[in-house]
């Protein structure tokens, strides 16, 4: 028995578990938005903005985290106007942003003379090497998100439900939509450094999608996807610790496992295609 609890003796594990909880909640909330608005590409667009940003940072000799964050925030606040002003679907405008940044990234990369591997390290993130400051930042972000959801819960629901209806009933759709995208961007940006640009997908798409199978209201969806996020992070961490596997992979696999179960349990099976 003592062996099993051993894991909590290490501060870095404790930190990872605490941040998993915040991460699960944040991603549960924005992931629900992302799934209901059908904009999964936001993750790709932002992680590549971070990629280009960090390379530029290394190139210029500034802290790559800083430039990456700036690129990410710019992106998340460009997507909204780009979508509404040019009248593109969000996924298309995000695909364009994605290719712009990928192009930029490789130009920057070609300009770096030595030590290119540093660039890729940044991209993965590692939940086991987080600092307490990072945990605090995530805590504050979680609180902000929860407050936003409490105050605007009903209006957010309308925007998620249908932009046509939101606009015609007189909701201030634009501002709210931009703000939602901006918050998604901030959460994704912060988590690039914690769980990494690729793993974030399992938390902003897979777990909310699991919740989507079972939820009967948006509120239930926030709750379920946060729970699923926390469960996959914590279980993934613990299992990776004992089996000595990379934590990111075990977290992803747990989230997929939950998705399969939810899909099987779903009452929203829909029509079978012949």
């Amino acid at each position: 028995m003592t062996n099993i609890l051993d894991i909590f003796k290490y501060e870095f594990i404790l930190r990872a578990i605490i941040s998993s909880i915040f991460c699960g909640i944040c991603c549960g909330i924005i992931g629900s938005w992302i799934v209901l608005l059908n904009i999964p590409f936001i993750g790709i667009a932002i992680s590549h903005a971070a990629f280009a940003g960090s390379i530029l940072g290394i190139l210029l000799g500034i802290n790559p985290l800083f430039t990456a964050a700036i690129f990410c925030l710019l992106t998340s606040f460009i997507i909204g106007p780009l979508t509404l002003k040019i009248n593109l679907s969000p996924n298309l405008s995000m695909s364009i942003i994605f290719s712009v940044f990928l192009g930029l990234a490789f130009i920057f990369l070609s300009l770096i003379k030595n030590n290119k591997s540093e660039v890729f390290n940044f991209f993965w993130g590692n939940i086991l090497t987080l600092s307490w400051e990072m945990v605090w930042i995530m805590f504050i972000l979680t609180i902000i998100l929860i407050l936003f959801v409490i105050v605007y819960n009903r209006k957010i629901f309308i925007i998620l439900f249908s932009n046509e209806i939101a606009q015609s009933v007189g909701i201030k759709y634009k501002a709210m939509f931009y703000f939602i995208l901006g918050l998604c961007g901030i959460v994704v940006t912060l988590n690039l450094n914690t769980i990494g640009g690729l793993l974030i997908f399992s938390l902003i798409v897979t777990t909310p999608l699991s919740a989507y199978q079972l939820a009967r209201s948006v509120r239930e969806m926030y709750f379920l996807s946060s729970m699923f996020g926390i469960i996959s992070c914590v279980l993934g961490l613990v299992v990776s610790y004992y089996l000595n596997l990379p934590s990111g992979s075990t977290i992803v696999l747990f989230s997929i496992f939950i998705l399969v179960i939810c899909r099987l349990l779903s009452f929203k099976q829909g029509e079978k295609v012949l």
């Binding site: 209901l36 059908n38 998620l160 439900f161 249908s162 009967r216 209201s217 948006v218 829909g270």
Partner: peptide, 11 residues
């Protein structure tokens, strides 16, 4: 017309 998500979790 309104296009709505058939699986949107709402009553």
């Amino acid at each position: 017309y309104v296009s709505i998500d058939k699986k949107f979790p709402t009553t």
